[in-house]
Design a protein around this nucleic acid. Structure first.
Lengths: 118, 118
DNA sequence: CTGGATCCTTTAAGATACTG
DNA sequence: CAGTATCTTAAAGGATCCAG
């Protein structure tokens, strides 16, 4: 039943991982390079520490973000992208291309028409 | 701040549109061809009519799904993919390729390592 | 600084009965 | 058949304070 959209599960997994309110925002910042917890908090501006740590943990569990701690006083933590986090970027760019043209169309029409299948 | 991941907004939009619990499942069925409301309900099996109509309305508003009514008795309604719905498929396949390899890695390791940036 | 814990509000979703 | 309406529960998110 689901063999036309291959591996529905994997796609659901991606949507779940990236679907949090702040995930893409966090990633967009980490694409500039590693950041500390406080730096992320400041750059996002309106996120609470609870949400930030939750989103980071999700991304880390998904293997997209890497967390490194340093035994300084006080402790410092750096978040960076994993290999998979980097390979995600061109994928997102691809999705974005589709999304941009979709949004333009949605804004310029009242109702979508069906695809012309001949 | 967000110019590295181009147009964060568009990506958020896609995640919102596809992020519902049943969206991908519905799309995976519609990729086989047009379906009536009841057919979708039956094929999914565990969805309530309230959720089904809600997800369909979301997809229609996003311009991905087209809804056509017929003045039969009783009324019949057919749901099909729009042009944008069709162009979404290869995009999802691309995401899926990335997702599949990610899941394999996540399952085979305890903790991700950072990307080697040289 | 990096988070954890708590309480609260909002949103998503499920169950079920009902209407044109 | 194709949805609506209502009620209830579960999950996501926000605010705030606290600890190592």
């Amino acid at each position: 039943m689901e063999n036309c959209l291959p591996n529905l599960e994997s796609l659901q997994f991606v949507l779940q991982v990236l679907g949090g309110k702040w995930k893409l925002h966090i990633l967009s910042i980490l694409y500039f390079g590693k950041k500390r917890f406080k730096e992320l908090e400041r750059e996002i501006g309106t996120i609470s520490p609870k949400m930030l740590i939750k989103e980071l943990k999700d991304l880390e569990a998904a293997g997209i973000v890497y967390r490194q701690t340093f035994n300084t006083v006080p402790i410092t933590v750096e978040y960076s992208l994993t290999e998979d986090g980097l390979t995600l970027k061109p994928v997102l760019n691809h999705v974005n291309e589709w999304a941009v043209q979709l949004k333009q169309k949605v804004n310029n029409r009242s109702k979508a028409k069906p695809a012309d299948l001949g």
